[in-house]
Design a protein around this nucleic acid. Structure first.
Lengths: 224, 224
DNA sequence: GTCTATACTACGATAGAC
DNA sequence: GTCTATCGTAGTATAGAC
């Protein structure tokens, strides 16, 4: 939660430093740490290979800086939505649903945004084979979001379901959202879409909302 | 992915080194094509580097053979369950649900199985940055499973929802299943579990069943 | 701060012994 | 078929000019 003096959306004329980071998000996300050469990275960012060493101390330093950069981007994208969430002791259980859906919308927006493709790939890679970068991502993003959403869902449940069942509901909801990013190639073929345009995104959002309501209405313990 | 090895898509006479193939599933899944050196691969499989060239024509040949190997494993794991599915014109719409849940169980079993960790990583990599290997995986697995499940869900819907809504339901269900493999690190932290033991697996299965029923009961078009 | 030039290492492929 | 030895060519990192 340490705030650096740097704020997003600065009108800087994008020095090589930033171009390198943006390129790194894309290339590392696509190919992974070992899949990208510093030469290719520098060429894509239109700078010299040695500037990677100069600015980040080497390839791995750039990789970790990339994780931090991604965490900041997501924080600034999700932060406003999270800030609007009420404290659970300020609302009645039955009022929690729209707030849960607000967070879902925020995450869905992130996942469906074409811009997110690059950093989402980076994160999924880290899920599968966590490095030091995963700690950075988890502490900055998941920890903060997860806590809020789990609290809201438990509040909405109002004792109807167990602590574990509430969390299982959260994971299921998460799954519905990330599947469009993580298994995108397959999801697109299922849907017979070529890509996710705004019309598709609206349809996805509508479906996920309906399914979230359904998941949050059923009771796992009621199963025959 | 442009070289053409000697084995396009044969039933495979397979006089090949199985240890090499098993090692490749694990290492390629973890690190990706570029992330693994032929030296490390050969050392882990306890053989000489040159046997990769001999058996598979090179690193890329081994990579594609690995995809084929994974496809075969999943086919044999999922095949029996698929074979038991009835043709949709043999059952009434309302009878489709248990059969859908049977396929869900089969996929969940695959995803929760510790053995699946290795090849699941391989598949997720291919989802994010598809190569030639994705075609192999898709044609052998997803195409067959997806067709059956989509047909069952549409049949179950019995005209209540649109073609697209039915497919969105299938993708949502898929998401609930794959999240435990793809975002495992995060899901475990949400659940406050250290790993997925049989007791946890049973709880997951129960929750996913309940949520599938809920998703298949709601109607996206009814949303306010 | 950014470049070019270079040092050094590890890579994939292959030749040839057995 | 499997091994060792070796080749040419990436790779990263660094030194030093500007």
């Amino acid at each position: 939660m340490s705030k650096t003096p740097q704020k997003p959306e600065q009108p800087l004329p994008a020095p090589t430093n930033d171009r390198l980071l943006e390129t790194a998000v894309d290339l590392f996300g696509r190919k992974g740490l070992e899949g990208v050469s510093t030469r290719a990275l520098a060429a894509a960012a239109d700078t010299a290979m040695s500037s990677i060493t100069y600015h980040y101390g080497g390839k791995e330093g750039l990789y970790l800086a990339t994780a931090r950069h991604i965490a900041e981007k997501i924080e600034s994208g999700l932060g406003p939505a999270l800030a609007l969430l009420p404290s659970i002791d300020k609302i009645k259980p039955e009022e929690a649903l729209p707030h849960i859906l607000t967070v879902v919308d925020g995450m869905l927006g992130l996942m469906l945004n074409p811009q997110s493709a690059a950093w989402a790939r980076f994160i999924v890679r880290e899920q599968m084979e966590p490095t030091e970068a995963f700690q950075i991502l988890y502490r900055h993003i998941f920890d903060r979001v997860a806590g809020r959403v789990i609290a809201l869902v438990e509040h909405y449940g109002n004792g109807r379901w167990s602590r574990e069942d509430a969390r299982l509901k959260v994971v299921s909801i998460l799954g519905q959202i990330v599947v469009f990013r993580v298994a995108r190639a397959t999801a697109l073929r299922f849907m017979e879409w070529d890509d996710v345009d705004p019309v598709h995104a609206a349809k996805i959002r509508r479906a996920v909302h309906a399914h979230c309501r359904a998941i949050l209405s059923c009771n796992i313990a009621d199963l025959p």
